[in-house]
């Protein structure tokens, strides 16, 4: 109700604005259209790696949950909605990076077929071991992925202040805001990191630590994830 009336107010203001003199409308108009400097080689290479490795990682997550769901959904009905919720979020993550990969013209990881098979296998085998082992797997994966997203965020925060000029006048803008493209990528990474950490909590709430042998399982899977990340960033 409130938002509806607010909308009407905004709408009725437009005609008033149109009647303003050019000088007046200038003072009320918002920030100038910015034209940003190109990305450096290193920035491009970083973004390329981010899109490729995150796409591959989310593909992996998607397939791990598929494997877990395949084994556990019917055996433990109470886990079904829990797994489904996390799986659906992974599908959304994966779709988002698929779109970024095609829109930004990034080469997907050539290892894609292996990521699919490997991830489905990890999901399937840990879930076959026990439901706790499946949750321990989630703990391991999300720990690595959460940390990885954090590293990316740090670089996006620190290394992407890029110069800009006023698109009309060519005047250099002091301390321009980060471009919408980088801002949106940062938002995406931040949101996904938060959701991965939620998955981590969910897994802990569902007895991940009771898995036997917990340390061996999680450390082995963490190591596997790190190797996969290293590979997917490159090829």
């Amino acid at each position: 109700m409130l938002s509806k009336s607010a909308k009407t107010v905004v709408r009725t203001r437009f005609p008033v604005r149109a009647l303003a003199t050019p000088a007046e409308s200038n003072t009320t108009s918002h920030a100038p259209q910015l034209k940003y400097q190109p990305l450096s080689k290193a920035q491009k290479a970083f973004l390329e790696r981010v899109v490729r490795v995150d796409q591959a990682g989310e593909l992996g997550a998607n397939y791990i949950y598929a494997g877990q769901y395949f084994v556990l959904a019917n055996r433990y009905p109470h886990l079904k909605p829990v797994l489904k919720h996390m799986w659906e979020q992974e599908i959304h993550h994966h779709d988002t990076f698929n779109q970024l990969q095609t829109a930004k013209r990034v080469r997907p990881s050539i290892m894609t077929p292996f990521w699919k098979v490997g991830a489905f296998g990890i999901g399937l085998s840990t879930a076959s071991l026990s439901k706790e082992a499946a949750m321990a797997c989630t703990v391991a994966v999300e720990t690595v992925i959460g940390g990885h997203y954090n590293e990316q965020l740090r670089v996006l925060m620190n290394q992407f202040s890029i110069g800009a000029v006023d698109a009309e006048t060519g005047e250099v803008i002091a301390n321009p805001p980060v471009s919408p493209e980088i801002a949106s990528l940062k938002e995406t990474v931040k949101q996904f990191r938060d959701e991965e950490l939620e998955h981590l909590d969910t897994a802990l709430e569902h007895d991940a630590e009771k898995a036997v042998p917990y340390m061996l399982l999680t450390e082995a899977i963490k190591a596997t994830c790190k190797v996969a990340i290293w590979t997917a960033e490159r090829i």
């Binding site: 940003y36 190109p38 990305l39 080689k41 829109a103 013209r105 080469r107 890029i162 471009s179 493209e181």
Partner: peptide, 15 residues
């Protein structure tokens, strides 16, 4: 040709 960096920006067009 295959392995060089490839990322096409929308807000930061190349020269």
């Amino acid at each position: 040709p295959v392995l060089r960096a490839f990322y096409q920006s929308s807000d930061h067009p190349d020269r």
